[in-house]
Write a protein that binds this DNA or RNA. Structure first.
Lengths: 193, 193
DNA sequence: GCACACTCCGAACGGTCGTGCTATTTTCGT
DNA sequence: ACGAAAATAGCACGACCGTTCGGAGTGTGC
């Protein structure tokens, strides 16, 4: 990896952290430069604009999310086990991770702000939703779920469970959030069985 | 209503609109002044700081939310009808309204930013959650829902349904979002019956 | 050994931010 | 109608914003 590529990585790593707690929109070149021990202009040179930086931050976080959530699920046995693994990994990164936090907050920051950032965000959500639906579909084919179950609805419902878990955990500091999420999840599974 | 109170109202009205689409944190005195045809300092005098403005915006939006969602539910007959009314009103303001949008986005903007804004936000969420649980509890007492159903879990689950509806509708522009929300809601009701 | 990318820095730019001050105008109780 | 009080405007401030530009330092291929 070339020198430039490495510093770019370091910057993006720091940027994900900052954006996860302060929001993607409130990323500033200055604070990011200070955090990484670079000059503003030196850092800026790696990204031609702030918008490009934001998009690359999203991309970077997306890779981490896929690595931490989608991959473990895909390497689990098909069917219910795969879905459960997905849920557990998702829960884990939602509890401790930074990337997931970024997606959720960015989703609402940009739901009314047209532009490349929003477009990327939408595509990521759609892609992930499709992945979940596909995992569920495989589960149907293997006989784990009801034949007339709706994969898109399942992906939708599961996402809702994760969103409210996230809010209860991060905003309200609800100690029982995880328990509630598991409860909701198992009921969702049961009703699709 | 005194003159000052009226302009304060007008400012807050505009502020809710702006904050709903751009976020509560990115409210600026300048743009808000321009939007209301005032000078920066003239507007600023009504709120002693930007933070106070943000808190008052939240308060203002909260009143609208209670007016549009909680009150219709409370004036519906107890039990399932009340819960259904709550859901329908909530869905309606989530589809078209601005106040609800503000709460949802602010919840993630401030979930990691300690201070008065976050504190207010947390209290509002807790209060509303309690209201929902209480409505459900009444429904249990009246025999509409299972005696061993969990009111807090119900409030939690319902909130999840609304969050994912909101995201599907606003970010993804999913035309079937409402249909999915209704489906998830009726399944939630059934599993608590 | 020299030219050439690549990487980064320092300084500066026009702009906007929140927030003070001081006037001036408007409102309102009497 | 008048005087106090409230409401608003004008102006300035220091800080930070994204961005540009010219130029150092450094390694690499010829």
């Amino acid at each position: 990896m070339s020198k430039g590529e490495e510093t770019r990585r370091q910057v993006l790593e720091a940027a994900v952290e900052v954006a996860a707690s302060s929001g993607l929109a409130s990323l500033t070149i200055g604070s990011l430069a200070e955090r990484t021990g670079m000059s503003k202009s030196g850092l800026f040179a790696h990204f031609k604009s702030k918008e490009t930086l934001q998009v690359q931050v999203l991309e970077f976080a997306s890779e981490a999310f896929v690595q931490d959530v989608v991959r473990p699920a895909l390497s689990a046995p098909r069917g219910e086990k795969r879905i459960t693994t997905l849920f557990e990994s998702w829960l884990a990164v939602s509890r401790d991770g930074t990337a997931e936090c970024l997606f959720v907050s960015a989703a609402w920051e940009y739901d009314d702000q047209p532009g490349p950032v929003r477009d990327r965000l939408v595509r990521m959500h759609l892609d992930f939703s499709d992945s979940v639906a596909q995992m569920f579909r495989t589960g149907i084919a293997e006989g784990f779920f009801a034949a007339d179950a709706d994969p898109e609805q399942f992906a939708h419902d599961l996402h809702g469970i994760m969103l409210i878990y996230f809010q209860a955990h991060r905003l309200l500091g609800d100690a029982r959030a995880e328990e509630r999420a598991r409860h909701a999840f198992s009921r969702l599974i049961e009703s699709n069985r």
